[in-house]
């Protein structure tokens, strides 16, 4: 984990031999066309012809292709993996785009114009003009009920989402509450059922009426879907068992935040553990601000 603040990296020249953002212009255009269709029908999955990328599927090639198609020379890119900017995955994707675009990168949410993410939405509220790109391993929310894509498409077309609520019913019956912790399904614009990618349910409310454009890319499944700015997004629930998010009994050990998503970190082999913000950038900034305040407090 990085505790020192990082300045945006200075732009470099893209390495010779690559087209800007790696993909050729025609491919990027066809992916943008799919993304535009996705924006026109919020929550609806649009097929696109997924390309081979110089990394394996587990690395989020869907997200990488979407990012590559929408990124411009003036963009500043942030890459999040499990809330952090310094995991291998995040570092590699950031390095990849620096190499093939020569663009600025950052770890600061508010400095980024484009954010590619796996597993988290930043705690820092997003703003108009920013684009979030989600890496999606499995885009089809009906797959667990209906493995046939044709039949699932029909269920979407006819808005037949009863069987999904059967799953919620079963959770409440068995566990007393809805047990899905990640990739908690949502209804978009009161019309399409959508998987928000494996973010914790804690992040679901941030999808709703978000000022940023949110794009979802699934490489292996060759699907793109989108939430245009200020789209209504509702997490599935029952009237008498409303959707809730995770809460913790203690604040973040580092910054004292009480309203963030916390990760449990084991600190030694005696099993001591800490609860700290999963969003490293947010936590760092709060620590800095706290530090500035410390003299007056003590």
């Amino acid at each position: 984990m990085t505790l020192s603040p990082q300045l945006p990296s200075s732009p470099a020249l893209p390495e010779p031999g690559f087209n800007f953002a790696y993909l050729d212009e025609q491919t990027k255009r066809s992916i943008r066309r799919a993304a535009l269709k996705a924006v026109a029908i919020p929550g609806h999955q649009i097929p696109f012809s997924s390309r081979e990328m110089p990394m394996s599927y587990g690395w989020g090639t869907g997200g990488v292709q979407v990012t590559a198609s929408v990124i411009g020379q003036m963009d500043t890119l942030k890459v999040i993996d499990q809330g952090a900017d310094d995991t291998t995955n995040a570092v590699n994707i950031r390095r990849f785009f620096r190499k093939v675009c020569g663009i600025n990168t950052t770890e600061r949410t508010e400095e980024a114009t484009l954010i590619q993410t796996r597993h988290r939405i930043p705690e820092t509220p997003l703003r108009e003009g920013q684009i979030m790109v989600y890496q999606v391993p499995m885009p089809e929310p009906l797959y667990f009920i209906e493995p046939s894509r044709t039949e699932a498409n029909k269920m979407h077309a006819l808005e037949e989402y009863g069987p999904v609520y059967v799953r919620l019913y079963e959770d409440i019956t068995r566990f007393g509450h809805i047990a899905m912790a990640y990739d908690y399904p949502v209804m978009v614009n009161d019309r399409y059922l959508m998987k928000p990618s494996p973010i914790p349910r804690f992040d679901n409310p941030k999808l709703h009426m978000n000022p940023a454009l949110q794009l979802f890319g699934a490489g292996r499944e060759k699907r793109i879907y989108a939430l245009p700015p200020y789209t209504k997004v509702k997490s599935l629930d029952f009237e008498d068992h409303p959707f809730t998010v995770e809460t913790w009994d203690q604040p973040c050990e580092f910054c004292g935040a009480t309203d963030t998503y916390l990760d449990e970190v084991v600190t030694d082999d005696q099993g001591s553990r800490l609860w700290i913000c999963s969003d490293t950038d947010y936590c760092n900034q709060r620590q800095q601000n706290n530090h500035l305040l410390t003299p007056t407090l003590s």
């Binding site: 009863g162 609520y165 059967v166 029952f238 009237e239 008498d240 068992h241």
Partner: peptide, 12 residues
């Protein structure tokens, strides 16, 4: 419950 859920019942 499934058919009730199909026709929009949302009260457990």
């Amino acid at each position: 419950g499934e058919r009730l859920l199909d026709v929009g019942e949302r009260h457990y």
